[in-house]
């Protein structure tokens, strides 16, 4: 069956990016290390996906220090929440289409 994929957000094509977004939508904010632990990914991998989401302006980044350790907090932006919602709706529609 052929399904149009244009409603899908390119930013969420990658699984890790979608997972990051799920966590940020469910929480006020999340820090880098906790995200890394939760998703079970490497530093570099997570950083590059976060960068991509930041470029789309789907997430906001707040950098600070706790003592001497850097503490970077990520939060979903309103645009990011909207895009995430749309993406989920597209997935739902896909299921409905296939049911027909």
């Amino acid at each position: 069956m052929k399904i149009s994929l244009e409603q899908f957000d390119k930013a969420f094509e990658n699984r890790i990016r979608l997972q990051v977004m799920s966590v940020l939508v469910a929480n006020e904010s999340y820090d880098f290390n906790s995200l890394k632990e939760l998703l079970n990914v490497t530093d570099g991998n997570l950083a590059s996906h976060l960068k991509a989401l930041e470029k789309e302006e789907y997430i906001t980044v707040t950098k600070s220090f706790i003592g001497r350790k850097p503490n970077t907090q990520y939060a979903a932006s309103p645009a990011g929440r909207e895009a995430f919602k749309k993406h989920l709706e597209a997935l739902e529609n896909l299921i409905k289409q296939q049911k027909k």
Binding site: S22, A26, L38
Partner: peptide, 9 residues
């Protein structure tokens, strides 16, 4: 997605 939202919050 659901699992992650649950587990993270």
């Amino acid at each position: 997605i659901r699992n992650l939202m649950e587990r993270s919050s």
